[in-house]
């Protein structure tokens, strides 16, 4: 379990987080959403130990990430947005890296490379951006770490690859694996992520599962715009209205509409979800 308590973090004069507290429970695939520059990547780096909090505490299964202890590192994998350009094949890369991870499975790597349709014979720097990302995803999954952090994983992937990405994540992540996906492309991870965390400058606006969200918020698809909605958007064939769920009605979460509703009604929805 990841526990973030009273976290403060700033880059020189730019404050990124101010006393935020947050928890990520085991076995979930979290969607980490937020506008550009709110600190999604920074949060992932802090959880991985690549940055150190200036105040407050982060623990991952009792480990302090910034200490970068081997026992902690062998259970986490971070796939950054910008991928490596090594002069080696993914196979050689995973063979030299995998030995450090106790649950690393080379057969699974080969299987994933085939499923993701990545050319095994090519070096990283001979692969396209999307192919590199898929190769690294295969590497990450084959290490079978307890925590997997993906920063904008679908950037640069074509449409079939995005579907393959969703399939691989949902199929090969065990019940014990915690995945945090930081993304702008909410459509790419729809039906994959649950719960959702929405970050704002200095603050966490939402950290809730779909069931908790739909318990409090109702997503109404109808022919007209409703005045009492937190957010309304025109869709082909009508409107989506995001509103308070006063009648305990069931609905399906539209992540994009939810995100926009939260951004427009920060304090209201934050208080509603408490």
């Amino acid at each position: 379990m990841i526990k973030i308590n009273n976290l403060d973090f700033a880059y020189k004069n730019t404050q990124v987080f101010r006393r935020i507290s947050l928890e990520f429970e085991k076995g979930n695939i979290y969607g980490l959403l937020g506008e550009n520059g709110v600190g999604k990547t920074t949060l992932l780096k802090l959880i991985c130990g690549l940055q150190k909090p200036q105040y407050g505490e982060i623990t991952v299964d009792g480990f302090t990430p910034s200490m970068r202890q081997p026992q902690f590192l062998q259970n986490v994998f971070f796939l950054p947005e910008e991928v490596i350009t090594e002069d080696t094949t993914p196979e050689k890369f995973i063979q030299k890296t995998g030995v450090f991870y106790p649950r690393y499975d080379f057969d699974l790597f080969n299987k994933l490379m085939k499923e993701l349709e990545v050319d095994l014979s090519k070096k990283f720097n001979e692969l396209s951006h999307g192919q590199k990302k898929k190769a690294l995803l295969a590497c990450a999954m084959s290490l079978q770490t307890d925590y997997l952090f993906l920063d904008e994983p679908t950037n640069g992937l074509d449409i079939p690859s995005k579907a393959l990405f969703r399939k691989v994540i949902s199929q090969y992540c065990s019940d014990e694996t915690t995945v945090i996906i930081s993304t702008h492309q909410v459509k790419d991870v729809e039906n994959l992520i649950d719960p959702i965390v929405i970050l704002d400058r200095d603050d966490v606006l939402l950290n809730a599962s779909f069931s908790k969200i739909t318990e409090k918020i109702f997503f109404e698809y109808g022919p007209e715009r409703l005045d009492n909605a937190y957010y309304t958007e025109m869709l082909p064939g009508g409107y989506i209205n995001v509103m308070r769920n006063v009648n305990n009605e069931e609905s399906n979460v539209n992540i994009e509409a939810l995100f926009n509703a939260v951004m427009k009604n920060k304090e209201t929805i934050k208080n509603l979800m408490k």
């Binding site: 991985c48 130990g49 690549l50 970068r68 202890q69 081997p70 026992q71 590192l73 062998q74 986490v76 994998f77 971070f78 950054p80 910008e82 490596i84 890296t97 450090f100 991870y101």
Partner: peptide, 16 residues
């Protein structure tokens, strides 16, 4: 800041 992430995340201690 980008390429060094792999090195930092390699499961070994700083001393090693």
């Amino acid at each position: 800041s980008r390429q060094g992430i792999r090195y930092a995340m390699l499961p070994a201690s700083s001393l090693e």
